[in-house]
Design a binder for these strands. Sequence first.
DNA 1: ACCTGAACACCGTTCAAGT
DNA 2: ACCTGAACACCGTTCAAGT
Lengths: 202, 202
Amino acid sequence: MARRSEHSRDEIQAMAIQAAITILSEQGLQGLSTRKVASAIGYTAGTLYLVFKNLDELILQVNAASLDELHVWMQDALAKNKAPQAQLLGLAHAYLSFARENFARWSLMFTHQMPVEMHLPDWFHDKVRTLFALVVKPLQQINASLTLEQYRQATHVLWSSVHGVCELGLNDKLALGGEIQAEELIDAMVKNFLNGFSQGWE
Amino acid sequence: MARRSEHSRDEIQAMAIQAAITILSEQGLQGLSTRKVASAIGYTAGTLYLVFKNLDELILQVNAASLDELHVWMQDALAKNKAPQAQLLGLAHAYLSFARENFARWSLMFTHQMPVEMHLPDWFHDKVRTLFALVVKPLQQINASLTLEQYRQATHVLWSSVHGVCELGLNDKLALGGEIQAEELIDAMVKNFLNGFSQGWE
DNA sequence: ACCTGAACACCGTTCAAGT
DNA sequence: ACCTGAACACCGTTCAAGT
C-alpha cells in the first residue's frame, strides 16, 4: 500500500514506544515482539526498522520512559517527606511501588541483557545518574563527614539492596512461600542500613 | 533412523543438562535453545520432549544444578572461616564469585521468568531453603536474642542485599561506569549490615 | 520518500511415520 | 519402544518491489 507520510518518524517512534508499554502491561515480558508492536500501531514490522535500529533500541527507549516515570515517583516521595531518614524510606517505597505496579516494564530494565557490543548512549546513563543523585542528598544530610567516594559507595550499596529486596521479594525467589510483605522488608532494610550508616562508613 | 536405546532416559536428561550448561557458558543466555541442546548431544529436538516436559523444565533442572554447585561454594566459605562475621563475609563473597564466574547460569536463575501456571516443585524450594539456612546460623550466633521470624527477615534482607549488589554491580546497571569493584561493595554492605544488626533488629 | 510483503534464518512444540 | 523429520505457529531482520 505504501501509505504516504501519515505520521512522521517521531510520531511512529512515540506510537511504537507507547504500544510496547501497553503490550508489556497486558501480556508481560514474553509478549513483547516487533511484529506485535508494529501491528498495534497499524504498520508492518519492517517499518519499525526505519525508525529504530532494532528491537534493542526500541527496548532502550521503553526503558528510558520507565526511568523518567520512576523519576517522577521518586521525586514525589522526596517532596512528601522532610526528614532525610523519612525521605530515604519514601524513596525506597516508591521504588518498590513502581516495580510492583509496572512489573513487566521494571523487569525489562534488568532481565533484558543488551548485546555486549551495544553500549548505552550518554543521555541514558545521565537519566540513571539523575535518579542516583536523588538518593545521595538525604544521605549527605544524615552523615556529613564522608568523602564523595564514600557517599557514592554508600548510595550504591543502599540502592542495590533496595533493588535486591524488590527483585527477590516480588519474584519469591527465596521460596519463603506464602505472602511476602516486601514493604516490611524494605522498612527493615532501610532502617538497619541507617542504623549503621549514621554512625559512620568504613 | 530411530536409534535404539543407546542411552536411558536419565542419561539423555543428564547429557542435555550438561550440554545446556556448556552452551550457557560459551554463548550466554541468548544462545540457549532446545535445538542447540539436542544437536549437542546428538539427538533431535523432539527427543528432548520425551525426557522434559518443555524448555522450562530443562531450565529448572539446570537451575537446580546451579543451586547445588552454589551450595558447595558457600559450604566451602563457611568451612574456611570461624567467626560468624567472617563466615557471613565469606558467604557473600562466595555468592559474588559464583555469579561472576558462572554469569549466564547465574542470570538464568533470575532473568528467566517461569510461566505463572508452572509452580516449582517442593524439592526445588528445598534446595533454596537449604542455602538460606547457611546464612541464618551465623546471624544467630552474632545476635542470639531475636525471634525466629526476625532471623528469617534479617536473612532475607541480608541476602537480597548481597544479591542486589551482585546484579547491579555485575551488569553496571547503576551506570557508575569504569571499574566497579563489586567485592568492595560487598564488603562495605555486609559490614554496615552487621553494624546495625549486632545492636538489634526492629 | 514511504511502506509493504516476501524471504531468510532462526525459535518452541507436536506428532505421524519409520525402524 | 525409541527417535526422526516434517509441520505449525511464532520470532528478528533485511530488502527488492510497489505507490
